[in-house]
Amino acid sequence: MLYEIFNAVGPVASIRVCRDAVTRKSFRYGYVNFHSVADAERALDTLNYMSIRGRSCRIMWSQRDPTLRKTGAGNIYVSNLDKNIDNKALYDTFSLFGNILSCKVASDPTGKSHGYGFVHYESADAAQQAIERVNGMMIGEQQVKVCLFQKRDREAEKENYTNLYVKSFPSDWDEEKIKETHRKTTLQQDQQA
Protein backbone atom coordinates (compact mmCIF):
# COMPACT_ATOMS: atom_id res chain seq x y z
CA MET A 1 0.00 0.00 0.00
CA LEU A 2 2.79 2.45 0.90
CA TYR A 3 4.62 1.59 -2.31
CA GLU A 4 1.57 2.46 -4.41
CA ILE A 5 1.03 5.77 -2.59
CA PHE A 6 4.65 6.97 -2.68
CA ASN A 7 5.51 5.57 -6.11
CA ALA A 8 2.84 7.86 -7.59
CA VAL A 9 5.10 10.80 -6.64
CA GLY A 10 8.29 9.34 -8.09
CA PRO A 11 10.22 6.07 -8.40
CA VAL A 12 10.68 4.45 -4.98
CA ALA A 13 13.98 2.70 -4.27
CA SER A 14 12.80 0.87 -1.13
CA ILE A 15 10.31 0.89 1.71
CA ARG A 16 10.78 -0.54 5.19
CA VAL A 17 7.99 -0.74 7.77
CA CYS A 18 9.46 -1.10 11.27
CA ARG A 19 8.07 -4.04 13.26
CA ASP A 20 8.52 -5.76 16.60
CA ALA A 21 11.07 -8.54 16.14
CA VAL A 22 9.02 -11.07 18.10
CA THR A 23 5.36 -10.29 17.41
CA ARG A 24 5.94 -8.74 13.94
CA LYS A 25 3.39 -6.08 14.92
CA SER A 26 4.01 -2.78 13.14
CA PHE A 27 5.42 0.12 15.16
CA ARG A 28 3.37 2.31 12.75
CA TYR A 29 6.35 4.06 11.20
CA GLY A 30 8.79 3.27 8.45
CA TYR A 31 11.21 4.58 5.86
CA VAL A 32 10.63 5.37 2.18
CA ASN A 33 13.75 5.82 0.05
CA PHE A 34 13.51 7.55 -3.32
CA HIS A 35 16.06 7.49 -6.13
CA SER A 36 16.19 11.30 -6.21
CA VAL A 37 16.04 14.10 -3.64
CA ALA A 38 13.54 15.98 -5.83
CA ASP A 39 11.06 13.09 -5.61
CA ALA A 40 11.51 12.89 -1.83
CA GLU A 41 10.87 16.65 -1.53
CA ARG A 42 7.75 16.33 -3.69
CA ALA A 43 6.45 13.49 -1.47
CA LEU A 44 7.05 15.63 1.61
CA ASP A 45 5.20 18.57 0.04
CA THR A 46 2.25 16.68 -1.44
CA LEU A 47 1.65 13.68 0.84
CA ASN A 48 2.39 15.06 4.30
CA TYR A 49 -0.65 14.70 6.60
CA MET A 50 -2.67 12.73 4.07
CA SER A 51 -4.95 10.07 5.52
CA ILE A 52 -3.78 6.45 5.24
CA ARG A 53 -6.29 3.94 6.63
CA GLY A 54 -7.98 6.72 8.56
CA ARG A 55 -4.82 8.05 10.22
CA SER A 56 -2.97 11.25 9.42
CA CYS A 57 0.45 10.35 7.99
CA ARG A 58 3.32 12.57 9.13
CA ILE A 59 6.30 12.68 6.78
CA MET A 60 9.71 14.08 7.69
CA TRP A 61 13.31 13.75 6.61
CA SER A 62 15.11 10.82 8.21
CA GLN A 63 17.63 12.11 10.78
CA ARG A 64 20.41 9.55 11.06
CA ASP A 65 22.32 11.68 13.58
CA PRO A 66 20.28 11.69 16.81
CA THR A 67 22.28 14.57 18.33
CA LEU A 68 19.82 17.30 17.32
CA ARG A 69 16.85 15.29 18.57
CA LYS A 70 18.50 14.41 21.88
CA THR A 71 19.71 17.92 22.71
CA GLY A 72 16.21 19.32 22.26
CA ALA A 73 17.58 22.44 20.55
CA GLY A 74 14.84 24.07 18.48
CA ASN A 75 12.08 22.01 20.10
CA ILE A 76 9.03 23.87 21.37
CA TYR A 77 5.98 22.85 23.37
CA VAL A 78 2.55 24.24 22.46
CA SER A 79 -0.20 23.92 25.08
CA ASN A 80 -3.85 24.92 25.39
CA LEU A 81 -4.49 23.88 21.79
CA ASP A 82 -8.02 23.96 20.45
CA LYS A 83 -9.18 20.33 20.13
CA ASN A 84 -9.89 20.96 16.41
CA ILE A 85 -6.23 21.76 15.64
CA ASP A 86 -4.64 18.77 13.93
CA ASN A 87 -1.05 18.05 12.85
CA LYS A 88 -1.44 19.88 9.53
CA ALA A 89 -2.97 23.00 11.09
CA LEU A 90 -0.16 23.09 13.67
CA TYR A 91 2.42 22.65 10.92
CA ASP A 92 0.86 25.37 8.76
CA THR A 93 0.80 27.80 11.69
CA PHE A 94 4.43 27.26 12.73
CA SER A 95 6.07 26.73 9.31
CA LEU A 96 6.22 30.52 8.88
CA PHE A 97 9.19 30.74 11.27
CA GLY A 98 11.61 28.20 9.83
CA ASN A 99 12.26 24.69 8.60
CA ILE A 100 10.33 22.16 10.70
CA LEU A 101 11.90 18.76 11.32
CA SER A 102 8.90 17.31 13.15
CA CYS A 103 5.45 18.54 14.16
CA LYS A 104 2.87 16.61 16.15
CA VAL A 105 -0.33 17.15 18.12
CA ALA A 106 -0.54 14.65 20.99
CA SER A 107 -3.64 12.52 20.61
CA ASP A 108 -5.27 9.33 21.86
CA PRO A 109 -5.45 6.18 19.69
CA THR A 110 -8.69 7.38 18.10
CA GLY A 111 -7.04 10.64 16.98
CA LYS A 112 -8.72 12.88 19.59
CA SER A 113 -6.38 15.73 20.59
CA HIS A 114 -4.98 15.99 24.12
CA GLY A 115 -4.70 19.78 23.65
CA TYR A 116 -0.93 20.07 23.30
CA GLY A 117 1.75 19.46 20.70
CA PHE A 118 5.40 19.74 19.76
CA VAL A 119 7.20 21.52 16.94
CA HIS A 120 10.88 20.77 16.35
CA TYR A 121 12.73 23.31 14.23
CA GLU A 122 16.02 22.88 12.44
CA SER A 123 17.39 25.91 14.33
CA ALA A 124 17.03 27.34 17.82
CA ASP A 125 16.55 30.81 16.29
CA ALA A 126 13.41 29.67 14.45
CA ALA A 127 12.07 28.16 17.68
CA GLN A 128 12.71 31.40 19.59
CA GLN A 129 11.00 33.46 16.90
CA ALA A 130 7.96 31.13 16.99
CA ILE A 131 7.75 31.48 20.78
CA GLU A 132 7.94 35.27 20.62
CA ARG A 133 5.37 35.61 17.85
CA VAL A 134 2.81 32.90 18.73
CA ASN A 135 2.81 32.70 22.55
CA GLY A 136 -0.50 34.16 23.74
CA MET A 137 -2.02 34.17 20.24
CA MET A 138 -5.50 32.82 19.53
CA ILE A 139 -5.42 29.67 17.40
CA GLY A 140 -8.91 28.44 16.74
CA GLU A 141 -10.92 29.10 19.90
CA GLN A 142 -7.99 28.95 22.34
CA GLN A 143 -5.17 31.25 23.43
CA VAL A 144 -2.07 29.06 23.14
CA LYS A 145 1.01 28.97 25.33
CA VAL A 146 4.30 28.36 23.54
CA CYS A 147 7.64 27.72 25.26
CA LEU A 148 10.86 25.79 24.82
CA PHE A 149 10.37 22.09 25.40
CA GLN A 150 11.88 21.03 28.73
CA LYS A 151 13.04 17.45 28.86
CA ARG A 152 11.87 15.71 32.03
CA ASP A 153 14.58 14.75 34.49
CA ARG A 154 13.71 11.08 35.03
CA GLU A 155 16.55 10.54 37.54
CA ALA A 156 15.24 13.28 39.84
CA GLU A 157 11.73 11.81 39.60
CA LYS A 158 13.01 8.39 40.69
CA GLU A 159 14.00 9.79 44.10
CA ASN A 160 10.31 10.33 44.87
CA TYR A 161 9.05 6.90 43.77
CA THR A 162 7.33 4.91 46.49
CA ASN A 163 5.77 2.13 44.38
CA LEU A 164 7.41 -1.11 43.35
CA TYR A 165 6.68 -3.36 40.42
CA VAL A 166 7.06 -7.04 41.35
CA LYS A 167 7.05 -9.87 38.86
CA SER A 168 8.00 -13.52 38.50
CA PHE A 169 6.64 -14.59 41.89
CA PRO A 170 4.84 -17.96 42.17
CA SER A 171 1.30 -17.89 40.80
CA ASP A 172 -0.17 -19.28 44.03
CA TRP A 173 1.08 -16.29 46.12
CA ASP A 174 -1.51 -13.76 47.21
CA GLU A 175 -1.04 -10.20 48.49
CA GLU A 176 -0.48 -11.37 52.07
CA LYS A 177 2.29 -13.80 51.01
CA ILE A 178 4.07 -10.98 49.11
CA LYS A 179 3.85 -8.68 52.16
CA GLU A 180 5.13 -11.46 54.44
CA THR A 181 8.10 -12.13 52.15
CA HIS A 182 8.86 -8.42 52.03
CA ARG A 183 8.78 -8.15 55.85
CA LYS A 184 11.14 -11.15 56.20
CA THR A 185 13.55 -9.77 53.61
CA THR A 186 13.56 -6.33 55.23
CA LEU A 187 14.15 -7.87 58.69
CA GLN A 188 17.08 -9.96 57.35
CA GLN A 189 18.63 -6.88 55.75
CA ASP A 190 18.27 -4.90 58.99
CA GLN A 191 19.94 -7.71 60.98
CA GLN A 192 22.85 -7.87 58.51
CA ALA A 193 23.41 -4.09 58.68
Rank of each mutant, 00 (worst) to 15 (best):
G111C: 09
V144N: 02
K167M: 14
Q189I: 00
T93D: 10
A124L: 11
R69H: 05
K145N: 10
R183A: 09
D20Q: 05
G115W: 14
F97K: 01
I131Y: 06
M137H: 05
E159K: 14
N163V: 03
G72R: 06
V166N: 10
S123L: 06
I15P: 04
F6R: 01
V37Q: 15
K83F: 15
Y121R: 03
Y3F: 10
E155Y: 03
T110M: 12
V37H: 13
S171I: 07
A73C: 10
C18K: 11
I100R: 03
N80T: 02
W173V: 01
S62R: 08
S56K: 07
D92F: 01
K145R: 12
H114E: 10
V105E: 09
F118Y: 12
R42D: 02
L90T: 07
N75Q: 09
E159S: 13
E141K: 13
E176V: 02
N33D: 13
E176M: 05
T67F: 12
N80C: 09
A13N: 13
Q143F: 01
S62F: 15
K83W: 09
N80R: 12
M137P: 01
K158I: 00
G136C: 03
V32L: 11
G30H: 12
V134Q: 15
S36H: 14
S62C: 06
